Every structure is written in structure tokens, then in C-alpha cells.
Computed example of a mutant assay.
Amino acid sequence: MSISAKEVNELRKMTGAGMMDCKKALVETDGDFDAAIQVLRKKGQKVSAARADRETTEGVVFVKTNADQTTGVAVAFTCETDFVAKNADFVALGEEIATAAFENKPADIEALKALKAGDLTFAEKIVDMTGKIGEKLDVIAYEVMEGEVIVPYVHMGGKLGVLVSLKNTNGTDVVEAGKDVAMQIAAMNPVALDKDGVDASVVEKEIEIGKEQARQEGKPEAMLEKIAMGKLNKFYKENTLLSQAFVKDNKQSISQYLDGVSKGLTVAEFKRINIG
């Protein structure tokens, strides 16, 4: 049967699929729009399955907070190429996913993907867009945070996002200080908030590395433990947020900087999401 340009354009508006894909689907289904939509969805599913083992090293981290900055979310929506990461439809879907995450606070990524967006779930919308764009798309990270003041930050052209929760704010405007700390986290990638937050396996590994380095330097066995503990304390200073030297003023630590902004001000927690 003959399919008109008007019908093709109508299906394109409904699905966002390409003109030729829409025309082929309508021809295949004798002009049945519902059946044509299913044909297009199956095409997306086939493309998605074929690219399942591809790496998604590009994309955008979306961060959102409420008006009083007591709640924040971060979502990493990924693709295969930088070209697609800049695609308006890709960015729009990422924004939609992040907004749904903020409004619903799902338990995890799978629950986020299961949220409804109109007639489809986000998992289904991602599959559909995979069919249209021809690349693997995925949500690889999702974080939600609540606290006295949550400060968001996005870096590296949208590929790195940070959420910082500040406490003991005492009614002080601490947003600029929070941004400074978020930039510190983005740049220095601390492993934990303080030494108490460092995983025991990391501590054990650092002690062993310290001992082996001292041994290679010819230090006596009786001294190895003490030397290793000294190296461990240096590791804490360089790799835990509150002990790190503040990048804007390395004469003080992050802890000292925050205390100078407002007495007792500190970080309750932080999240750092990086794509690629």
C-alpha cells in the first residue's frame, strides 16, 4: 500500500525514529500505527542486545537539588561517543531520568529504570533511544543525599559530578564553601571523608606497601612497623578529604578551611561520580 509523507511524519513525531525507519515500519504493517510502533520498538531491542557488551565511556552526569538545598541527586547517563553525549535528545532523556530520580528517590538504579515515563518505563525509553541512535546507552550511577546543606558540582564538561553534604552550618551561608570542597573532591578524588572511613583492606595494603618500601631501603625489620605507620598517616593526609591540603590554600587542610568559614562547619558525606 502507499504510505503518505504525512503518515510518516506523524509516526516520526510520535516515536522520534528516523524518517526511513518510520516509512519501513508503516509499509511492513500496512499503515497500522500501533503495529508500526511495535516494529520500531523491536528494532531498538535488537540494536540494544547487539551492543550490550560495548563500553559506555562518554555521557553526562546530571545533578539536582531542591530550593533549600537539603536534598540532592546525581545520575550518570552514558553512551559510547562524545558526539551522542552532546545530542539534544540524549541530554533531554538524561534530564528526564534525573528529574524522576529526584522526585521519586528510588532505591537503586534498577528501581530508577523501572519508573514510568508516560506509557513506557525509563528502561524501555533507553532501549528505544538505543535503536534510534545506534549506540549503547545506560544509567551507570545514581546517588541520593539528604542533609543540612547539599552542594552540587559538575566538572569536565559534565562527565564528573559531586554532591557534598555540609553539617554544623549554624544558619551561615556555606554554599560557596561547599563549592570549594566539591571542586577539591573533583580534583583530588579522596578515598574517604577521614581515616575512619578508609576500608580496612586499603589500610592493610598500605601498611604492607610501607613495610616493603622500608625493607627495600634496607631498614631493620624491627623498624618496619613504625615506618609503615608513618607512611600510613601520610596516606591519610593525602587521600582523606578533611585531612587533605586545601587546593586553594595548601597551608591549611579542608577541615581547617571549613572551621574558618564557620566554627564547627564540616562535611557529613560526599559522593563523586565519574564517567570514563
Rank of each mutant, 00 (worst) to 15 (best):
S243W: 00
A141L: 10
D173K: 03
G72T: 04
I3G: 11
M188R: 03
G161K: 02
F62M: 09
A25E: 04
Q45N: 11
V174L: 09
I227R: 10
L137M: 14
N189F: 09
I207R: 13
K248Y: 12
I140Q: 13
L163I: 05
V91R: 12
K248C: 12
G131I: 07
A25L: 11
I273E: 03
I185Q: 01
K219H: 07
F270A: 00
N189C: 14
S201T: 09
Q216F: 08
I150G: 02
A107H: 03
S255E: 07
S4N: 12
V181K: 01
E176R: 07
G118M: 06
S262F: 02
E212F: 02
K132A: 09
G171L: 13
G264R: 03
D82L: 09
A36H: 07
K159D: 06
D173Q: 08
E96K: 14
K23L: 04
E143L: 04
G44K: 05
M19L: 15
R54N: 14
K263P: 02
T15S: 11
A177C: 09
A50T: 10
F122M: 02
I109S: 11
L93N: 01
G197A: 00
A182C: 11
S201L: 08
D138E: 15
L258Y: 01
A107C: 05
M20L: 13
G44M: 06
M1N: 11
Y153L: 11
M156C: 14
K179G: 04
I273N: 04
D82S: 12
G31N: 10
V39R: 11
A50V: 07
T70K: 10
V151D: 01
K46Q: 15
A111N: 10
K24C: 05
E28S: 14
